[in-house]
Every structure is written in C-alpha cells, then in structure tokens.
Lab assay of single mutants.
Amino acid sequence: GGTTSGLGELPSGWEQRFTPEGRAYFVDHNTRTTTWVDPRRQQ
C-alpha cells in the first residue's frame, strides 16, 4: 500500500489491477466491465 495518492478506497465491487506493462486499470465486478478511468475521479 501507500500509493493511494489520497483518493481513498475504491467503490464497493471495484478492483485495481495492472497490465503486464504496469499500467493501472479498474475492474467493476458489479457490471463485469473494465475501465482506464479511476472511478474515484468520477464522483
């Protein structure tokens, strides 16, 4: 941990993952979708 950059926890059902290249993306298990956009930035 320690790399949350002050955004806090992800919404319920979300998970942060990384591509083999090390790029972060976000998985929404509620809708079984993925996005490059941090859901915390859409609030």
Rank of each mutant, 00 (worst) to 15 (best):
P20G: 12
T31G: 07
S12M: 10
S5F: 05
T34F: 00
G22C: 05
T33Q: 09
T3Q: 10
R41I: 09
P20K: 14
R41H: 15
T19W: 00
W14H: 03
W14I: 07
D38V: 02
T4S: 13
D28T: 00
F26L: 02
E15L: 03
W36G: 04
W14R: 01
W14F: 11
N30E: 08
G1C: 15
H29G: 07
Q16M: 12
R17F: 08
G8E: 09
L10V: 04
Q16S: 08
G6D: 15
Y25G: 01
Q42V: 12
H29E: 06
F18G: 06
L7P: 10
G22P: 01
G8I: 10
S5K: 14
F18P: 02
T35W: 02
T34E: 04
E9I: 07
G13A: 04
D28Q: 02
T19S: 13
P39A: 01
Y25D: 00
T35E: 01
T35A: 02
R32V: 04
T34L: 03
Q16V: 10
S5C: 13
D28K: 01
R41A: 15
G1E: 15
G6C: 14
V37K: 10
R17P: 00
T3D: 14
E21R: 06
P11F: 00
E15V: 06
T35P: 00
E21M: 09
G13N: 03
A24V: 11
L7Y: 12
L10E: 02
G8C: 09
E21H: 15
D28R: 00
R23N: 15
W14Y: 05
N30H: 03
P20I: 12
G6K: 14
E21W: 05
A24C: 14
T33R: 05
S12A: 10
P39L: 00
R32M: 10
R41C: 15
Q42P: 14
F26W: 12
H29P: 02
G6F: 11
T19H: 04
S5M: 14
E21N: 11
F26H: 02
G22R: 07
L7D: 13
R32P: 02
